[in-house]
């Protein structure tokens, strides 16, 4: 495992050659700042709300990697004092789906910081997130000697065809995509890395019903008190050293955990799926996107009568998708 970890770190160093600094505000990072690292491509529509959401939660500095955007993403990010941007035209696929770039930035800037690694379509929810900012959470994690915080991916989707309600920049995506699957997730331990492997949700239900083992992984550990020795292995699903993956209790208790609301399924999804399929830069030969495209031929609707309407984190807690643990 140590060898694997070192290899990942070396790989991220090599891949860092692909990154070009576009805007450097890293000198503004204060020692206690929460950092947010994200890789993106053509996200100018989502970014305004994304930034607002995470600034409100107390993120101190954003580190963005722009993978060859052709829209206004870079202009949008330019000139903001709490944002640093790198650009790359390297292959998303060959950089382990952006993980190498993320690892590189984390190693360089995030040492000693609580660091949140999320995609632009992921909204981080955690216990008491409506009244306590992320620094309250991380202070508590610090005092409990916890280094990593789990937040499983929950796909949210609209009722009706995806393109029925257009999303406009700055809008809360949860106004449109406010439904989710509450209780069809399968969990199994992954002995190699010590993490849990979670599958299920609407994507498994709709696109992978006959091949559920191929359904996308939903386990994520996006919030980590970073150390330069750490490295993400596969997206933010798992980390090395393995101890960081141990975000679950095995003796009957519940550790605190959160959720990432995955707002991928908006009207922007179709275009994205088509584009990504052509680029072939996604997981398992874009099998995921291909499955979507197949399933999406006739007006895709992920909604079902048992879908649950999203209200707040407490609801997720009651449903057992996340837990307060002993944070009260």
């Amino acid at each position: 495992m140590r060898v694997r970890r070192r290899r990942r770190i070396l790989r991220s160093m090599r891949k860092s050659l692909e990154l070009t600094l576009f805007q450097d505000n890293t000198s503004a990072i204060r020692p206690d700042d929460i950092l947010l690292v994200s890789t993106m491509r053509n996200e100018s529509v989502r970014l305004p709300y994304f930034l607002e959401y995470y600034r409100n939660l107390g993120v101190g500095h954003f580190l963005f990697i722009d993978n060859d955007s052709t829209d206004a993403t870079l202009e949008l990010l330019g000139g903001q004092a709490d944002i640093s941007v790198w650009t790359t035209s390297g292959s998303y696929l060959k950089s382990s789906f952006g993980v190498d770039w993320v690892n590189r930035l984390c190693r360089k800037f995030a040492h000693g910081h609580w660091t949140l690694v999320v995609d632009p379509d992921e909204l981080f929810v955690y216990p008491f997130c409506d009244t306590r900012p992320i620094p309250a959470l991380t202070d508590w994690l610090d005092s409990s000697s916890i280094r990593s915080f789990s937040a499983m991916l929950i796909d949210v989707y609209p009722k009706g065809p995806l393109d029925a309600q257009p999303y406009v920049a700055g809008q809360d995506p949860l106004e449109i995509a406010c439904w989710f699957d509450s209780g069809n997730y399968t969990i199994r331990p992954n002995p190699t890395y010590g993490n849990l492997w979670i599958q299920g949700g609407p994507r498994s239900r709709m696109f992978f019903a006959e091949k559920p083992w191929e359904a996308p992984a939903l386990n994520k550990i996006p919030l980590v008190k970073w150390d330069r020795k750490f490295t993400y292995v596969s997206s933010t699903h798992m980390l090395l050293p393995r101890g960081l993956n141990h975000v679950y209790d095995e003796w009957g208790g519940e550790k605190a955990s959160g959720a990432l609301l995955h707002t991928k399924f908006l009207d922007t999804f179709r275009g994205k799926a088509r584009e990504e399929m052509e680029r072939g830069q996604h997981y398992a030969d874009s099998a995921e996107y291909r499955a979507y495209a197949r399933g999406s031929k006739e007006s895709p609707d992920l909604w079902c009568p048992s879908s649950e309407k999203y209200i707040n984190w407490r609801q997720l807690e009651i449903l057992g998708l996340m837990s307060k643990g002993n944070w009260a």
Binding site: I198, V247, Y248, E250, G252, E254, G320, L321, M322
Partner: peptide
Amino acid sequence: GRPGLYMQSRMP
């Protein structure tokens, strides 16, 4: 924990 619950942070 909550009896009968298996989730991301409870896997007894």
